[in-house]
């Protein structure tokens, strides 16, 4: 199994790096370095370096994964796929190749930035590497769900729909809940006027809960979900990670595992319709 996954990973990475896409991404990485880290400056400020390159890493990983997933989703790969005892081997190779190419691009930018001499202590590197790696792995897994390669029927809409709902709940105050509560109350009155008293009562109770504590409860829930991101941002801003914040990359990896398992399930059960071209 390892030989097959390794063979495909090497093939996909090689193919990506030496394609026009690979060249464009390399140029993009160089442009990013030039814009955000002036080559004439000395060693960059650690927080700036850490924060900017974390964001850059996650972003470029997402894009690289999308592009690579497009490249592997072509009908020239049918003969490869039918040779594998399990389709998951193919997906694993796509995952590893995306991660490898992304780390290469992020590493290139990170090394170029330190051209004028790194000035970081070993402890700072120990903070930086787990955060970068976990963010990159996370970005690969969510990008897979955005690609045609993994998407099965409406799965992409459901996946990103749920993420969008959670993000919007996390970012809103109480106002929408009060508005929604008013709408539910008027709906329950209509039901009550039509002789559906029991249903109307339940809706009324739900509307009251929504008006009083829904916003707070849902906000706490989504804050818990997005905690790893907040913890990493806070850790970088405070120049050090508390023991609790240091767990954030591990939690992020757990998310990535869950998304990867979801991707394997979708991929293993979908009809493979590679495209010509």
């Amino acid at each position: 199994m390892m030989q097959r996954i390794w063979t495909l990973t090497r093939y996909f990475s090689h193919r990506f790096i030496f394609s026009l896409n690979g060249i464009i991404y390399a140029v993009l990485a160089l442009a990013f370095w030039f814009l955000f880290f002036d080559p004439r400056q000395g060693s960059p400020d650690f927080d700036h370096y850490f924060f900017i390159l974390s964001g850059f890493g996650a972003g470029i990983t997402f894009l690289v994964t999308l592009t690579l997933a497009g490249q592997v989703n072509r009908s020239e790969h049918f003969p490869f796929l039918v040779r594998l005892p399990s389709r998951v081997e193919y997906l694993t190779a796509v995952f590893l190749a995306s991660l490898w190419v992304s780390i290469l691009l992020q590493g290139l930018t990170a090394v170029l930035t330190l051209y004028n001499g790194p000035d970081f202590a070993a402890g700072q590197w120990a903070q930086l590497i787990p955060v970068w790696i976990s963010l990159d792995i996370f970005a690969v897994t969510i990008a897979l769900h955005a690609s045609d390669f993994i998407t099965d029927k409406w799965s992409r809409v459901y996946f990103y729909g749920i993420v969008a709902v959670l993000l919007s709940i996390n970012g809103t105050e109480n106002a929408p809940y009060a508005w929604l509560s008013q709408k539910l109350i008027s709906f329950s009155r209509t039901l009550s006027n039509n002789g559906m008293g029991s249903v109307s009562g339940s809706i009324n109770k739900f509307a009251a809960w929504m008006n009083s504590s829904a916003g707070d409860t849902l906000h706490k829930f989504t804050a818990l979900i997005f905690w790893p991101f907040t913890a990493i941002a806070n850790g970088i801003a405070a120049h050090h990670f508390t023991p609790k914040q240091a767990l954030a990359p591990a939690i992020l990896l757990l998310y990535a595992i869950a998304f990867y398992l979801l991707a394997t399930d979708l991929w293993a059960n979908k009809d493979v319709e590679f495209i010509d071209g």
């Binding site: 009908s75 039918v82 005892p85 010509d276």
Partner: peptide, 17 residues
């Protein structure tokens, strides 16, 4: 025994590089 299946699609494309 494995490998079990080899498949030649109708319009077989190849990695041209």
């Amino acid at each position: 025994t494995w490998p079990t299946i080899a498949y030649k699609p109708e319009r077989q494309l190849f990695p041209n590089h």
